[in-house]
Structure formats: C-alpha cells, structure tokens
C-alpha cells in the first residue's frame, strides 16, 4: 500500500478529499436552507432598481443572509466590474465612465463564520 501510494500519489487518500468537499458544500447548503423565502423576490426587485442606473447581468447582484454570532445580516452585493453605468438625467453622468468596482454592503458577516456567498436559487 505504502509503495503504491508513493508510485501513484493521486491514488492517495481520496477519503480526505471527500471529507473536505463535503464540508464546503454543506456549509453552503446549510446557509441557503436557512435563508428566508423572500430572498429571490428581493433579488429580482433589486435587479430592476439597480438596472435603471447600471447595466448589470443577473449574476452580478447577490443577496444573502449571513449569520454572525447571534445576529443575522442581510447582505446585498453588486459587482460593478464590467458593468456599464447608464447616463442619469440631463447628461449629468459621463456617457462612458470607467467602471469602478463597488460593493454595496449593508452589513458584513464575521468572515470566519460563514462561506463567502450563497446564491439563493
């Protein structure tokens, strides 16, 4: 066995890989299972509002409920990398602005307690 492990390292301990993959996927699934039912509707409404100002794809806006200690936090993240900002009013905004990476974050979770993002499905 030891010799085989040495000769074919990719054979080694696939159980450890299974364990690590399970830990990650279950952390995500538990978080989304606890998410309130209104998240998909909220995400849709927010996309509509934000879409009046910025052209973004659906997957660039993410809504998530995270838990940090005893408090629940509603997080709304909008990715602006590559988004096109629409002109506002009478040309007040520049026609072709440089995209600025901005994150609208209502609250930040404890980074150690939860996985980064969970997309409600």
């Amino acid at each position: 066995m030891r010799l085989l492990d040495f000769l074919f390292p990719e054979r080694r301990n696939t159980a450890a890989i299974a364990r690590d993959r399970l830990k990650i996927v279950l952390a995500h699934e538990r978080a989304s299972a606890q998410a309130p039912d209104f998240l998909p509707a909220l995400q849709k409404d927010l996309l509509e509002v934000v879409g009046r100002y910025i052209e973004i794809r659906d997957d660039m806006l993410r809504v998530n409920v995270a838990r940090a200690g005893d408090t629940s936090l509603l997080e709304i993240n909008v990715e602006l990398d590559g988004a096109v900002i629409k002109p506002v009013g009478n040309g007040a905004a520049p026609a072709n602005p440089k995209p600025v990476p901005v994150a609208i974050t209502v609250a930040k979770p404890d980074p150690t307690s939860e996985p980064p993002w969970v997309k409600p499905d």
């Binding site: 066995m1 080694r12 301990n13 696939t14 159980a15 450890a16 299974a18 364990r19 399970l22 830990k23 279950l26």
Partner: peptide, 16 residues
C-alpha cells in the same frame, strides 16, 4: 477501505 484511505472514516461522518 477506510484503512486504505478510500472511505470516509466514522469520525469524518460524525464531525460533518
């Protein structure tokens, strides 16, 4: 199979 590292251990499943 657990001994060969091919199957999740009892502790793995308990912990997860």
């Amino acid at each position: 199979r657990v001994e060969k590292g091919e199957m999740l251990t009892i502790d793995d499943v308990k912990e997860i």
